[in-house]
């Protein structure tokens, strides 16, 4: 019996390895998010230009970073899968889009709620916003291709190739504010000459981002464990 499960040995081991990491992620993420929320909502100073609305930044920017980071993660996992043909990579990559799409949605919604008081409109068709919307649709496409190939051998390959083609969008999103003159403000934290943002705002932003990132990892790891278990179920129920 054990020998027959040999092919899942590595995923099983992986599942056991991520178990403690996952819990550490969750139990550091929750307090960090709580601290970040309290500082961000009540103790951080209002911006001299944007006033109190700058408080939306702490959730908007952190979610935006995560939605971009998630795609980079998918991209590298897919490339590794295509190089080494190791199914665990694509299994991990396939679990990311669903979680990432929620963060993309959060980014878009909070962004438009931030835009109304500052720009006077919920939505403009400028480069940054449009490319982020396209990211949402690319995530949807990735989920869709996963579903369309549910019991097909080629599903893994199609998924990884599509994610590689879709990666063209990531540099466009990152540099859209620098390349085009748009309404959206340019990057103020991650840039070559160091962050231009006030340190009292940077601290809660960093705390919040770390917290949400750890939460993201917790969710991904839980999903990966579920996916590994799902494969095991498929295997167990396919043999009479």
């Amino acid at each position: 019996m054990l020998r027959k499960l040999h092919k899942y040995a590595n995923p099983n081991k992986f599942s056991l390895i991520i178990m403690p990491i996952k819990n550490v992620c969750l139990y550091t993420a929750l307090p960090l998010i709580a601290i970040g929320l309290i500082i961000g909502l009540f103790f951080s100073p209002p911006d001299y230009q944007q006033g109190e609305t700058v408080r939306i930044m702490y959730i908007h920017v952190s979610s935006a970073w995560i939605s971009l980071f998630a795609y980079v993660l998918i991209f590298f996992l897919s490339v590794f899968y295509l190089i080494w043909k190791f199914p665990l990579f694509v299994l991990m990559a396939k679990e990311i889009p669903f979680v990432a799409i929620i963060f993309t949605l959060i980014t878009l919604i909070t962004g438009s709620l931030w835009g109304k008081p500052t720009w006077g409109t919920y939505w403009v068709w400028d480069a940054r916003l449009t490319s982020f919307l396209i990211l949402l649709f690319i995530y949807l496409g990735l989920i869709f291709i996963d579903k369309a190939f549910k019991y097909n051998v080629n599903g893994d390959l199609s998924f990884s190739y599509l994610s590689i083609i879709g990666a063209i969008n990531i540099p466009i999103i990152k540099f859209s504010v620098d390349w085009w003159n748009t309404l959206h403000q340019p990057a103020s934290v991650i840039r070559a000459s160091g962050p231009s943002i006030n340190i009292e705002m940077l601290i809660p932003l960093m705390i919040m981002s770390t917290g949400v990132l750890l939460l993201f990892f917790y969710l991904i790891f839980t999903n990966i464990q579920s996916a590994i278990a799902e494969k095991k179920i498929l295997f167990l129920s396919s043999k009479d």
Partner: peptide, 23 residues
Amino acid sequence: ALMLGSSLRGAALTFITLPFYLP
């Protein structure tokens, strides 16, 4: 090319290609 093996090729193809055409 990558949708070739899928059973619901037509619909999925339209959906997945459209975002890449937008820019």
